[in-house]
Computed example of a mutant assay.
Amino acid sequence: MLAPVIEPADLKKYSGMQRAGALMLALGEKHGAPIWAQLSIDEVTELSSCIAELGRVPAAVVEHLLVQFSSEVAGMATLHGSYDSTERLLRAVMSEEKVREIMENIRGPSGRTMWDKLSNVSETLLATYLKNEYPQTVAVILDKVRPDHAARVLAELPQELSADVIMRMIRMDHVQKEVILEVEQTLRSEFMSNLARAQRRDPHETIAEIFNALDRSSEERMMAALDERSPESAERVRSLMFTFEDLGKLLPAAVQTLVRNANKRELALALKGANEEIRQLFLSSMTERAAKLIRSDMSAMGPVRARDCEDAQANLVRLAKSLGDRGEIILVDPKSNDAMIY
C-alpha cells in the first residue's frame, strides 16, 4: 500500500516531539511497550505531556509517520490524544506508582519539583488544605515554597494558626530529610492528586467536541444511541455542542468577522447546503459585490455532495470557535441565557 501524499505544510505544524507522541499513540500498548521501557522518567514525562495535549491528528499524517503499520491505522479517521488515553497507555507498561507520578506532573500546576508546583497552586486552595494540618507540618511546607506565595497563604489561614506557624518557622532549625520526604509524599498522594482529579475536564465536553467533528449522519446516529442509553448525558452533550445552525444566532458584527476570515470557496460550499435563514444572514453581512460573487460561486458549483457541504460547514464552525477562543467574536447572542462568551 502506498503512503498517502502529505504536503510539507501538513507536517511542518507538528514539532518533533508531537510527531513522536502521535507515533507512540498509534503504536498503542502492544507495540509501544518496548519503547516506553527504554525511556528515562523525564523522557516519559515529557512525551506523555505532549500526548495529553496532542488533540486530533489527521489519519493521513499518522499513516505518513507509521507507513509500515498502515494496515493497523488505515481505518482510523483520527487519533485523539488526551489525559485519559495517555494514562491508559502508561498503565499498560509501568507501575501504578510511576504512572501516578507522571500524570500528576502532567496534570498538576507547572514546576519541576513538588515545591515549585505548590508555589503555583492558588493560595486559597492551599490554605484550605493546610488548615487541617499540624502547625509544624504547615511550617515545613511554607518554608519550602516561594516566600511571596507563603505570604499569601499565611494571609488566608486563621489568625491563631498563622501566628503559631510563623513562630515555628522562626524556631525551626535543621529539618531531617526523611521528614521533608514524608511531607512531600503526603502532598503528592493526597493534595496534588486530588487537585489533579478536580481539574479534569467534564467528559461531556470531550464528547461534545468529538460529535462536533463528526459528519452529520454519524453525529445523529451516535446521539440517538446516547439518547437511548443515557438521556441526561445526551442532553448535556447537546447543550455543550456548537453546531452550524448556531451560527444563525451570531450578531452581525461576528458574522462579518467570520466572513472576512473564511475561505471564500469553502464559505460558498457551506452556504449552498445551508437553510435560507442562515444563508441570508451571511449574505446580508457582505458588501453587495461580495454577496454577488458568493451567489455566483454557489450557482457555478452545480449539484454537490451533501457530505462536502457538511464538511465545509464543520470547518466554518471550527473557525468560529477559534475566533471565539481568541476573543474576536462572541458566540451566540449575549442577551441570551445560553450565551457563550469567549
Rank of each mutant, 00 (worst) to 15 (best):
K144Q: 08
S230Q: 04
N337G: 15
A274P: 03
S230Y: 03
R201Y: 09
A290P: 07
S296N: 08
R238G: 01
A213W: 00
K117R: 15
A198S: 14
K292E: 14
M17N: 02
Q136Y: 09
V44M: 15
N261P: 06
R229Y: 12
V165Y: 12
I41R: 15
L130Q: 09
L181N: 13
A150F: 07
A77R: 13
I102E: 06
E72H: 09
Q38C: 11
E156L: 01
T78V: 09
D164C: 05
A26K: 03
W36A: 07
W36H: 08
V237R: 00
E220S: 06
F242R: 01
L281E: 14
R152N: 11
E43H: 03
R201H: 12
V57P: 02
D333W: 14
L293V: 14
S230M: 08
E220K: 02
D42I: 15
R200A: 08
R88G: 01
R168E: 03
R221T: 08
T124V: 14
K264T: 06
E205T: 04
S49Q: 13
T128E: 06
E46Q: 15
P58W: 14
L293W: 00
L251C: 06
A60M: 00
I6F: 09
V61C: 03
D297N: 09
V121R: 01
S217H: 10
A150Q: 05
Q176H: 15
R171W: 10
F69L: 11
M298G: 05
R238Y: 00
G324E: 08
I41N: 06
S82A: 04
E133R: 07
V121Y: 01
G108C: 11
V93K: 00
L125Q: 06
S218N: 08
E310C: 00
A320D: 02
D246I: 02
L79K: 04
A59Q: 15
P8Y: 04
S217L: 08
L214E: 10
V138T: 13
E288Y: 13
L157E: 07
L316W: 00
M17H: 01
E53I: 13
L25D: 10
P147W: 12
I330K: 04
L319P: 01
K177L: 13
L247I: 02
M172K: 05
W36M: 02
S299T: 15
G248V: 11
G75K: 03
I210Y: 01
A213L: 03
R168F: 04
I51C: 12
L89R: 08
D227H: 01
A234P: 12
R289M: 12
D10G: 03
A163H: 10
H64N: 11
V62K: 05
T128N: 07
P4F: 02
M169G: 10
L247C: 02
E43R: 02
D246T: 02
L39F: 04
